[in-house]
Amino acid sequence: MAARKKTPAARSPVDGLIELVGVSKVYNPDRVPVHALADVDLQIAAGEYVAIMGPSGSGKSTLMHILGCLDTPTSGSYSLRGQEVSRYTGKKLAHIRNRDVGFVFQRFNLLPRLTAAENVELPLLYARAPADRRREVVADLLAKVGLSDRGHHRPNELSGGEVQRVAIARALANDPAIILADEPTGNLDSKSEDDLMELLDSLNAAGRTLVVVTHEDSVARHAKRVVLLHDGRVV
């Protein structure tokens, strides 16, 4: 990849997978400015398991959107795997979301029209992976989350816990650097929550970097580090 080779040598000395320096996000800058994030510094190393906590309106979601390259900071720098992505636009951000980030949302994670297997296949399709490789990866991932026999079911035929597992399988599809989970257990009963957290723990144990946004201590307890946000600042 030509773009990566051109990245300046000014890399962080730390093994910083993720490095936010002075990141701010201001919504509505012209009329009534809302400072969703103010001067946030955050480093996450490869293999970390981080929980981001805070009351609603504290900027958790904004931080996650920026980490996941769904949004870009108003000011400050964000480097992911050594790439300065804070000024990327459109197609490049889509590429990073596809390759370097895996999302798990709280609800409505899966496309209702597609089967579980087709949902897992989506990131591979957008990565232009050949059909035989897609089949192989999808089968592997469904096995990994314990849903090999549910591949042909549609989301409305799956339980809440199963849907979240499929979402995790999909997040892993392109072997991303980081998994971002936004309240992944928000809609689950406690048994399913335990199962899901166990799955996430096992991923981290295998070396996967995890960032979980949550306001539940029971979830945050699984993480090895907790980042607390308040009014857009890390406290």
């Binding site: 996941g68 769904l70 459109g90 197609k91 889509a94 590429h95 979301r97 596809n98 390759r99 999302f103 949302f105 409505f108 994670n109 899966l110 496309l111 209702p112 029209r113 989506l122 990131p123 957008y126 990565a127 999909r170 599809a173 392109n174």
Partner: peptide, 16 residues
């Protein structure tokens, strides 16, 4: 709309 959001989140470009 939500489907489009999810597709974009998993890496669909505007062109896709």
């Amino acid at each position: 709309t939500r489907e489009i959001g999810i597709r974009k989140a998993v890496g669909a470009s505007d062109a896709d």
